[in-house]
Design a binder for these strands. Structure first.
Lengths: 215, 215
DNA sequence: CTTTTTTTGTCAGCAAGAATACAAAAAACC
DNA sequence: GGTTTTTTGTATTCTTGCTGACAAAAAAAG
């Protein structure tokens, strides 16, 4: 099983000490500057982690999917949040106090090691992104994003893979370090080639190899 | 004390099971595709972690300093290396077998938690970099790099802070996602302003605030 | 159903910086 | 000390893609 999400068994240990909460798409779960005293287990929906400059520039630095912990790094490191977490869809979460979580880790070596593995995986993902931003053009980065999303939240249908999360072009631009008009144009290029299509905010990948040829 | 390097006490636990090795500047410690069966403690010098595309494009995704572990994420995650590690200066390392290291973690809850903290810190650093690549121009990214290097390997002298690692413009370009000629030009701009100077491959920061004004 | 807000399509102008090329300088090597 | 290799300085050309602006379309709100 995957190295990025918790098993049911691991989740059950956590669920015993947590409090369930629900939020709607767009809700900001935590903000930069706040104390990092809580940690969340995401049960349903997706959450984006982003940063802001003083002048309003925004970059999404990570996405979290069901089974993943949110706010992990800062709770371990201590101190303040450095980023924002926002619900990309309607989400179900379970909230824990930081202190309870850390105590649990000290008493559960296997869980502790799993947390290290998850962080290692996330670090690798982040380094992938750095490398893409440094070495690839926007169409390549966009194609890579869509393929990654397909792997993490794609629903296989007869004619392709439907991404099970709502996305605006503005949101996508923040994920690939581009501008909204460029994303609109590039998605339309992909569509003209028959690589993708969409209904509302939901993109469907029709031809994976066509998409890969843009990388 | 810092959350990114090991304490002497933590190091001594590791040193007992490791093998010392030395390499010269430029030596490639491990390469993408190799089995991730070893882990290193860096004792002296700096190491860069980078990725390569098939077409030779290169991006440095992280730097490691004395007291830090190298090859950590992949050892935890398992499988193959996804990146290259190369000595930026003459380095002293201590090498361990992956299996020994993992066993140690399971038996030392405090050390295990420390590893999680280190990874959390690295993840945050990587997300900083993503955000900089997405939102800042080359001069801003270069200024930020120099300031970060000053904090991690700067030697305070009467007229400024000397960076204690040799850097070519090509190397810097790979760290900030730019091209060599652009780095040469930007460094010269910084120097004309009196913000920095250099002797050979060693840069010295003369006026931190001048540099910050480029961010 | 109508109004308001958000999102998307599109275009023209412009700026950042990549690619390329070549000479000068510095460093490494013999 | 001389030769080779690496690194740096610099200019020119050319691309990518950002900015800003505005209309059309879609979605949300009333």
């Amino acid at each position: 099983m995957a190295n990025y999400a918790l098993h049911d068994q691991e989740k059950s240990i956590l669920l015993a000490i947590g409090l369930p909460v629900q939020y709607r798409r767009g809700h900001v779960i935590f903000s930069a500057g706040e104390a990092a005293d809580r940690i969340y287990l995401l049960e349903k929906g997706q959450v984006k982690i982003y940063r802001l400059t003083e002048d309003g520039d925004r970059a999404t630095v990570a996405l979290r999917y069901p089974g993943e912990l949110i706010g992990l790094a800062e709770v371990l490191y201590g101190g303040q949040r450095t980023c924002f977490a926002q619900a990309m869809a309607n989400v179900d979460l379970v909230m824990f106090k930081c202190a309870d979580f850390l105590e649990l880790l000290l008493n559960q070596p296997e869980l502790n090691l799993k947390i290290s593995r998850i962080l290692g995986f996330r670090l690798r993902e982040a380094q992938d992104t750095i490398y893409e931003l440094a070495c690839r053009y926007v169409p390549g980065r966009l194609a890579l994003l869509l393929l990654k999303l397909a792997a993490r939240c794609g629903i296989h249908e007869t004619d392709g893979i439907r991404l099970d999360l709502p996305l605006t072009h503005e949101e996508i631009a923040c994920m690939v370090g581009s501008s909204r008009p460029t994303i609109t144009a590039t998605l339309n290029d992909f569509q003209k080639e028959g690589a993708i299509t969409w209904q509302g905010k939901y993109i469907k990948i029709l031809q994976t190899d066509r998409l890969k040829s843009w990388i």
